[in-house]
């Protein structure tokens, strides 16, 4: 099968970007979407053109490096998977497929499809941790955690930090990302001492980075490659309100 790719190209010279169309060579339906881009890039290279820059690394859906908005959807047509786990068999022979970068003010474009997501690191630096120094921790079994609580914390902790939630949101809100980390740590007994401080600091940093507000459209949940649910945003809102009522800043 073959596809026609409409790809966003943008240089580093400050000039405006635009779409270019590239017909693919014959593809094997079992190829991954990124392997298809590899093949197209090899062709471009041999033709003396610059290959398409795109982010990728583990290619097994866990590192969160790959991005891409494919036909208007972050991480492509299938639910619960990242772009690197999207396969050519999800498209039909002859389809035109539109490929764009994640777009959000807080994720500046470097080149073509590559964006910078440092804002997420800065949100974690503001409070996405439990303050324990190496050494001196009590025995791991001295603090039982109910299985359902541990499982729910794990559901939230699965977030891969890819930023698809931001790219899908009309407000470019990072609430799902922040809510996942706040919920993971605030659910666990270990996270209690910093509970209020954490949510306040992370939300403050989220706002400072220029992410928009949440209007509960649910588009983030729909594109999350780890199926992290909106209920965590509700949980974070409660955490935030409780901290506010206690006069925490």
């Amino acid at each position: 099968m073959r596809l026609r790719l409409r790809v966003w190209r943008q240089g580093q010279d400050g000039a405006a970007g635009g779409f270019r169309v590239y017909p693919t060579p014959e593809l094997n339906p079992n190829m991954s979407f990124l392997e298809m881009l590899d093949v197209v890039n090899d062709e471009l290279t041999l033709k003396g053109e610059e290959p398409i820059a795109f982010d990728h690394d583990c290619r097994e859906g866990i590192c969160g490096t790959c991005s891409l908005v494919i036909d208007g959807k972050p991480h492509g047509p299938r639910r619960g998977v990242a772009t690197c786990q999207t396969y050519v068999r999800s498209f039909r022979d002859g389809d035109e497929v539109c490929i764009e970068p994640f777009r959000a003010r807080a994720f500046p474009i470097v080149k073509d499809l590559v964006v910078i997501r440092k804002a997420f690191d800065r949100i974690i630096e503001a409070g996405g941790f439990i303050s324990v120094r190496t050494g001196g921790a009590p025995d791991a079994n001295s603090l039982p955690v109910a299985k359902d609580v541990a499982e729910m914390a794990m559901d939230a902790a699965q977030c891969i930090g890819c930023g698809a939630c931001v790219a899908a949101c009309k407000n470019a809100s990072a609430m799902l990302f922040v809510a996942a980390k706040v919920s993971h740590l605030n659910l666990l007994p270990q996270g209690q001492p910093e509970r209020e401080r954490r949510v306040m600091a992370m939300v403050r940093q989220m706002d400072a980075e220029g992410f928009g507000n949440c209007t509960v459209t649910g588009s983030c949940e729909a594109v999350c490659p780890k199926n992290i649910g909106l209920e965590f945003i509700a949980r974070m809102n409660r955490e935030y309100a409780a901290a506010l009522l206690k006069g925490k800043t």
Binding site: F129, I130, V132, T134, G135, A137, P138, A140, L143, P144, V145, A146, K147, A150, A153, M154, A157, H184, L185, L188, Q190, G191
Partner: peptide, 11 residues
Amino acid sequence: HCVAQGVPFAR
């Protein structure tokens, strides 16, 4: 140490 950091190990 990892439990103290909040790593959600299976229980």
